[in-house]
Nucleic acid binder design. Structure first.
Lengths: 153, 153
DNA sequence: CTGTGTGCAAACATTTTGCAAGCAG
DNA sequence: CTGCTTGCAAAATGTTTGCACACAG
């Protein structure tokens, strides 16, 4: 259903976004552009709040509101340009979806997030789903632990 | 660190709870008992709200408050008697931790949750952690899809 | 008795919504 | 021009906290 985005640059994502907007009769605004641009230039994991603050800082003239950030993130997520993970304590985080699916290793000490992919696990997940009669659409895997640094503290 | 609870019945969990309370100089109250009992008798996945409503219904004399449910769930979770998963849309859910670790298959159609365990995946997760220098303490894996019923609708 | 636990309501944090004005197409 | 989009503030949601009274130990 959803186009595979592989590893896209900003230009391609922007084009993708404009296409989606057009086909839904939505408008391309400077706020939406600023949010997409910020997500692309900072391939980190944002909370709604932290993304809001960064956009505000980088585009002071825009006078953006937090509601717009929420609305745009929902829009981007619905269309597969952004994906989110919900961490327990740290709340929900978003990242630009310009690379293939991956999962997360999360340090409980310093909060660092490492991305990884493991095809063997993915295959086993498919098997589990099949055994239970499920048609898999998505999955979420987060490994919690201590990174090398935090183990020695 | 945490005792393995295997598959315990209510009596054993109750004893465990009382021991934990005593060793922390906390008190065994009828509210705490009612919450533990309700969790045991209904091995489903509760939200704070749904657990609150059920306890309220089953123990009308108790006149329990939602704050007590939150406080007790935190207490139980800290001590490993309850575990929680945070679902995207459906919010956070709790279940009694009287069986060994397992993960969840979640139907996006009807919300049904199926539990499973898969040692092969667990082993691969350990490997991923090791490759990244992580010391694993915990993990979360949720597979989303459509159950057999919902595929045909 | 003592100090922990409770219900209640207020406080909080986060996200959503209604609205009038702004602006893209 | 039209109607989608915005910022703002209010509302809604989910969770935590302060307090005076209750009650377990």
């Amino acid at each position: 259903m959803q186009k595979d985005l592989a590893v896209l640059g900003y230009e391609e994502l922007l084009l993708e976004f404009r296409t989606i907007l057009k086909s839904n009769k939505l408008k391309f605004t400077s706020q939406r552009e600023a949010i997409l641009q910020t997500l692309c230039r900072h391939p980190q994991h944002f909370t709604s709040e932290s993304l809001y603050l960064l956009v505000k800082k980088n585009y002071p003239k825009l006078n953006i509101g937090i509601a717009t950030v929420y609305r745009t993130l929902s829009l981007l997520e619905e269309n597969g340009l952004v994906s989110s993970i919900s961490l327990g304590v740290q709340g929900k985080k978003f990242e630009i979806a310009n690379k293939p699916h991956h999962d997360h290793l999360i340090c409980e000490g310093c909060g660092e997030i490492i991305e990884f992919e493991n095809p063997k696990i993915e295959k086993l997940q498919e098997e589990v789903a099949k055994e239970n009669g499920f048609l898999l659409t998505n999955h979420l895997m987060q490994l919690y632990g201590l990174c090398q640094k935090c183990q020695t503290v």
